[in-house]
Design a protein around this nucleic acid. Structure first.
Length: 415
RNA sequence: GUGGAUAUAGUUCAGUUGGCUAGAACGCUAGAUUGUGGCUCUAGAGGUCGUGGGUUCAAGUCCCACUAUUCACCCCA
């Protein structure tokens, strides 16, 4: 027996309706926000992620599914959605399209990690990237999009927001951090010692107790923001409040990907129903397009983990809408199959979902089956009915049975 | 990468200080007098007890190794 690979999951028939509902919600938002879908390959050249995601990140350093193909190229299964979209944007000159260009995708992502609750080696992200808009309205609106997505499932998780500043204030802040940590780094954890060299910002995110103590007195980004960045952030908060987005300012929020500038955010599970902290996250990355070889282009985007969303809903006891209903089960009590097939076709041509008897079952067993699969009605077709040109139809939840002529059959379902 | 836990039927789990043909519930299949589901009753199918070794007259039970799963840390969605 060959088993499923570690950290992967089958979506079984009894829960695939949840994924259909996610698709449906995304389609609704695509329509409302006028988004356009982009599909990029499941794998890219390794170099794209090293440069795009950043070589100081855990994702690049220890979590990538990298292999050499038969042509000797280093290939990596995408660990996140943004880098591929940005590559495609540059490669296909999408900067010549009318801007802003608002894209979305649903894609599997692969990371070689030890699996645990809410963490898989293959997970799925719904993401959206908005190219060519640097306004605070864009920041607010993309947060509203993510927030609307969650609200469609009946939840309203808090989004933590923070401002890393523009490249100018960020540069000043990072040198202040280096100055602050330089004499203390020998007392901090080995990871932080590395971060000091590669990305000092991430020291602030350290979970080791000694480091956390030292971090408390570290310089705050808010003290290094220029006037423009400050007013912009205040404007964003005002807009978010007006739009009903459930946000909270978290000055310690730092994200594990290197490409962010200005705004970063993370949708979190405050009740700790999930083992994992993040339901989704994103931010603004105004330098990434340029770093990957394009001309300067502001972008803001997010990624939302679908498996985590579904797990979160399950843990909260929130049901996902199930659109898969069987309108009618057509039971046969005759050996005359032709009229049955004809009726089934008539029903389906009228967009009524139906199933007919495909096994050698007694009428009683057919009723039992219809009940088990949650059919709303059972239509009985037997020799008597065929003779009288009338059918018997039973509503299973009410137990009510009615006689109906063939000409009224469609009306019965269409109300 | 580090640490903990677990492994018996399709699923959730019992299985005594080692003892004889390994159990339950749910699920599945069928039946309970003529062509009608849910409730109830009856019957049936389904397990080399994760794999390999060891101790013993005897191992699901004790010991060792391996594998798998799972939870937590790190980090992330």
């Amino acid at each position: 027996m060959i088993n499923i690979p570690k950290g992967t999951k089958d979506v079984l028939p009894n829960e695939s309706y949840k994924w259909n509902e996610v698709e449906r919600v995304v389609q609704t938002l695509r329509h409302r926000y006028n988004l356009h879908e982009i599909k990029t390959p499941m794998f890219e050249h390794t170099e794209l992620f090293v440069r795009g995601v950043g070589n100081s990140t855990d994702i690049v350093n220890k979590e990538m599914y990298t292999f050499t193909d038969k042509g000797g190229r280093s290939i990596t299964l995408k660990p996140e959605g943004t880098a591929g979209v940005v590559r495609s944007f540059i490669e296909n000159s999408l900067f010549n399209e009318p801007l802003p260009l608002k894209l979305y995708y649903i894609t599997p992502c692969f990371r070689y990690e030890r699996p645990q609750a809410g963490r898989l080696r293959q997970h799925t992200q719904f993401g959206s990237e908005w190219f060519g808009c640097d306004s605070v309205e864009a920041d607010a609106e993309i947060l509203m999009l993510a927030s609307d997505f969650y609200k469609s499932f009946g939840i309203n998780p808090t989004v933590l927001i923070n401002n890393l500043g523009c490249s100018e204030c960020r540069k000043n802040y990072i040198s202040a951090l280096k100055e602050f940590f330089a004499p203390k780094i020998k007392d901090m954890c080995p990871d932080c010692a590395k971060r000091f060299e590669t990305n000092p910002l991430r020291i602030l995110d350290c979970k080791v107790e000694e480091c956390k103590q030292i971090n408390k007195s570290a310089p705050k980004i808010s003290d290094y923001l220029c006037e423009d960045c400050k007013t912009r952030f205040e404007q964003l908060k005002t807009l978010l409040t007006k739009l009903g987005v459930n946000y909270k300012f978290d000055p310690m929020l730092v994200r594990g990907l290197d490409y962010y500038t200005n705004l970063i955010f993370e949708f979190v599970d405050e009740d700790k129903k999930l083992g994992q902290n993040a339901l989704g996250g994103g931010g603004r990355y105004n330098n990434l397009v340029e770093e990957l070889g394009g001309k300067p282009m502001p972008v803001v985007g997010f990624g939302i983990g679908i498996e985590r969303l579904l797990l979160y809903l399950e843990n909260k006891g929130i049901e996902v809408k199930n659109n898969q209903v069987l309108d009618v089960y057509v039971a046969n009590a005759t050996n005359n199959l032709e009229p049955i097939v004809k009726i089934v076709k008539l029903l389906r041509d009228n967009n009524i979902s139906c199933e007919m008897n495909l096994s050698n079952r007694s009428l009683k067993a057919q009723f039992k089956y219809a009940d088990k699969i949650n059919a709303k009605n059972v239509l009985v077709i037997g020799d008597d009915e065929l003779k009288q040109k009338k059918f018997t139809i039973k509503n299973l939840s009410e137990g009510k049975q009615t006689e109906i002529g063939e000409e009224d059959l469609i009306k019965y379902f269409k109300g």
